[in-house]
């Protein structure tokens, strides 16, 4: 379509302004997005950069302080704790989630299971459940006195585990569990979609060639859904950089014992909206944005080489 217009001879090619004027209909259709985008996304990003080099409590005049916010950030143990927690949760939680989501997707795709729709619905359900509500429920599941997990621990003859208290060594596990619970089904459904889009002839010819099921799995299915898996994994990892609801409910705004449940986003919220340190919080935001850009670049490189 566009290549056709591109090859038109120059004298028949109307001027840019004329073509733009003629296209006023599509422009007005896409205008709402770009207007809202400019106001609520593009401007905040630029303004964020500006804020990160200012000292500002949100009300009184700003004061330029250069990289002081970043220096303070680098010397703040709470920031390193939050960064550590966020990366730990973001990376470790994805390993069991990815594996189990793949296994379930393969099983549902294999055709051995009759009620595929029922299982798909069940696994997907957590996506629609309020993260705040379910974090409250999980706080009870991991409760010290009468949580279900400790019920099993006691039944098996063990000592009760203080998941939410103590030195905070368990609180990241609780947050990871909630995260996995919420997003397992989402990822599974995406993998399943990938598997179901593999053309049947591939499997057919593999069967004729007498391939065993592990061969089919590792030679056909996995390579075919690799791009889908990688793409959703990258989006999911980036999503954990801004993890907020679960740590906020489970560990609170101060991050729980030894701040082991503090995430970067909670740190940002705490500094900006509880202590009015807007410049400092903007520096935290910039760190999160840089982390995202790094992952996006890594991703582009990974994809760029293979495809």
């Amino acid at each position: 379509m566009s290549s056709h217009t591109d090859t038109l001879p120059a004298h028949r090619h109307p001027g840019l302004l004329k073509r733009m004027r003629r296209s006023w209909v599509p422009y007005t259709y896409i205008a709402p997005f770009y207007i809202l985008f400019m106001i609520f996304m593009a401007f905040p990003i630029v303004f964020s950069l500006y804020l990160s080099v200012q000292h500002w409590d949100g009300l009184s005049p700003m004061r330029f302080i250069g990289f002081d916010n970043f220096m303070r950030l680098a010397g703040d143990p709470m920031f390193w704790r939050a960064l550590n927690n966020t990366l730990f949760i973001g990376i470790v939680a994805h390993i069991p989630m990815l594996l189990f989501a793949l296994v379930v997707a393969f099983i549902l795709d294999s055709g051995f299971i009759r009620s595929q729709h029922l299982y798909r619905t069940i696994y997907f359900m957590p996506v629609v459940v309020s993260s705040v509500a379910i974090s409250i429920v999980f706080s009870n599941i991991f409760g010290l006195r009468s949580g279900i997990i400790n019920l099993f621990v006691v039944m098996l003859g063990g000592q009760r585990i203080n998941f939410l208290g103590g030195q905070g060594e368990w609180i990241r596990l609780v947050i990871m569990t909630i995260f996995i619970w919420r997003w397992l089904g989402w990822n599974m459904v995406i993998y399943l979609a990938g598997l179901q889009s593999i053309p049947g002839e591939l499997y057919e010819s593999a069967r004729i060639d007498g391939a065993s099921w592990p061969q089919v799995l590792f030679r056909i299915s996995l390579p075919m859904i690799r791009p889908v898996v990688l793409f959703s994994l990258v989006l999911s990892v980036v999503g954990t950089f801004t993890l907020f609801d679960e740590p906020f409910v489970v560990a609170g705004v101060e991050g729980g014992p030894n701040r082991m449940g503090l995430s970067l986003m909670v740190l940002l919220y705490r500094n900006a909206f509880r202590y009015s340190r807007f410049g400092y919080a903007a520096a935290v935001a910039l760190v999160m944005t840089i982390m995202t850009v790094i992952v996006a670049l890594m991703n582009a490189k990974l994809f760029g080489k293979k495809d």
């Binding site: 379509m1 566009s2 217009t5 840019l16 073509r19 733009m20 296209s23 599509p26 422009y27 896409i30 997005f33 770009y34 985008f37 106001i39 609520f40 996304m41 401007f43 905040p44 990003i45 303004f47 964020s48 804020l51 949100g58 989006l235 980036v238 999503g239 950089f241 801004t242 907020f244 986003m265 940002l268 919220y269 900006a272 807007f278 919080a281 903007a282 935001a285 999160m288 944005t289 995202t292 996006a296």
Partner: peptide
């Protein structure tokens, strides 16, 4: 097909990768 439709759409897609919530402070100020 209108002038700029390609890069306008690319711009739109690229916003999917941005964790906009990280910019909640300037967003809040607006």
């Amino acid at each position: 097909r209108f002038p700029g439709h390609r890069w306008l759409f690319a711009l739109c897609l690229s916003t999917l990768m941005i964790p906009w919530i990280a910019n909640i402070i300037p967003w809040f100020i607006i």
